[in-house]
């Protein structure tokens, strides 16, 4: 279980995060949802250990990791732009980290990840030859083979289009289920957050607006921000889709 206690952060006098308290159970998918500048990416970087917080504590499985450096926290992230190394091919990218932690993952396990993410036909391709969805899966594989205790995803769907988006969504859900992996996702898209995750944390101006399951957020929005910005978008979308298909499909 991951516990965040009273986390606050300022950048040059400007408050980015204020008193964030949160508990995430093992194996849960949690989305951090908010408009740009809300502080969600900063919170993700604080959990990762990339950004230092000003106040607060991070407790992971009963151990205080607040001052544990990024490398030793054993969390890992897939960045929005994947940050794949272009001079290496897909396979070399995936095994990049294995060289440093020998014996961490057996050859059999490695093949399992590759099969699971359906990357076998693409292993010898250069990064530039991969499509967006393939890149995403290579980046996921590269991160997963290091066996992170928590998987962090920064806007994992924003660079993908249409159908691929939906399939990656399912993939993320099955990873979390298959490996019982706590997954924290940053997104600005309400539809994505509410359909992908077990729980959603809505952040506005550095504060928690609401934390709950999708159902709770839809049925009991805790304030006007959630109503006006989060739910309204979904209602407009629903209306548009109704208009397209006709009421009979409602």
């Amino acid at each position: 279980m991951l516990k965040l206690q009273n986390i606050s952060k300022q950048f040059d006098q400007k408050i980015v995060l204020e008193n964030i308290n949160l508990e995430i159970n093992t194996g849960e998918i949690v989305s951090l949802l908010g408009p740009s500048g809300s502080g969600k990416t900063t919170l993700l970087n604080i959990i990762l250990g990339l950004t230092k917080m000003d106040e607060g504590k991070i407790i992971f499985n009963g151990r205080d990791v607040s001052n544990v450096p990024m490398k030793d926290r054993e969390f890992n992230i897939v960045f929005q732009d994947y940050a794949l190394f272009p001079h290496l091919n897909a396979y070399e990218n995936i095994v990049y980290g294995l060289r440093n932690k020998k014996g961490m993952d057996s050859e059999k396990e490695l093949q399992e990840y590759i099969d699971f993410l359906e990357l076998k036909p693409h292993l010898t391709k250069k990064i530039g030859e991969l499509s967006g969805g393939q890149k995403q899966r290579v980046a996921l594989a590269r991160t997963l083979v290091t066996k992170p205790k928590i998987l962090l995803l920064d806007e994992p769907l924003s660079a993908l289009d249409g159908v691929i988006k939906e399939s990656i969504k399912q993939r993320i859900q099955s990873i979390a289920k298959e490996y019982k992996l706590t997954t924290i996702i940053v997104t600005h898209d309400p539809e994505e957050a509410l359909t992908l995750s077990d729980k959603v944390l809505i952040i506005n101006r550095g504060n928690i607006s609401q934390f709950g399951t999708s159902r709770e957020i839809i049925n009991q929005p805790s304030n006007d921000f959630v109503k006006d910005f989060i739910l309204k978008q979904l209602q407009i979308k629903r209306q548009n889709i109704f208009n397209l298909f006709g009421e009979k499909y409602a």
Binding site: L50, M70, K71, N76, I77, F79, D81, A83, F85, P86, H87, Y96, G97, R99, N100, K101, R142, T143, T146
Partner: peptide, 27 residues
């Protein structure tokens, strides 16, 4: 170059110098 390469290298177990040598330099 991508701003996240060093962080990625570090998360994958490289030291800073090693990431420079294995990723930044070849690119």
């Amino acid at each position: 170059m991508n701003r996240s390469w060093e962080t990625t290298g570090e998360l994958l177990g490289d030291s800073w110098i090693k990431t420079i040598y294995r990723v930044i330099l070849p690119n």
